[in-house]
């Protein structure tokens, strides 16, 4: 990347404006990783590739819900954005089966689940 001008900043901003695509975000701070977020992240990547799904997996920092790590936020068109807490391997599969492919929230109460804002 060469030197950016203020115009480039605008351009990047527009390019990154919400494109309506689906994504999964995994909280990957030290605490998240200590709770297993890296394994959760890797499993998402692996499973999505295996199933050939059209959804992006991203990393992010502290979501402020440090009590329920690893936490995963999911955006799928037509459903509200939610954060699943205490996600383990089983949780990853459930989120993919139900939320991403089944167009319904994973309501099993073993997971913490909350709307954002």
């Amino acid at each position: 990347m060469g030197k950016l001008t203020p115009k480039d900043l605008e351009r990047i901003k527009t390019a990154h404006a919400d494109d309506g695509k689906d994504w999964i975000k995994v909280g990957m701070s030290t605490c998240g990783i200590a709770a297993g977020a890296d394994k959760v992240y890797a499993l998402f990547v692996e499973e999505i590739k295996k199933r050939n799904l059209n959804i992006q997996v991203k990393k992010c920092g502290c979501q402020g819900m440090c009590y329920s790590e690893p936490s995963v936020e999911v955006r799928v068109k037509g459903l509200p954005d939610v954060i699943y807490g205490k996600v383990d391997k089983e949780g990853v599969i459930k989120i993919l089966d139900k939320h991403v492919c089944g167009n319904a929230l994973v309501k099993d109460s073993i997971y913490e689940l909350r709307t954002k804002r």
């Binding site: 901003k13 990154h16 975000k25 990393k59 992010c60 920092g61 502290c62 402020g64």
Partner: peptide, 23 residues
């Protein structure tokens, strides 16, 4: 302070720029 924490990918500068970063 936490405006982008948990929102953006901290390892991707474009995502910071998209949130008005470096403006």
């Amino acid at each position: 302070v936490l405006r982008n924490c948990g929102e953006i990918d901290p390892e991707n500068i474009d995502e910071y720029i998209a949130k008005d970063g470096y403006r």
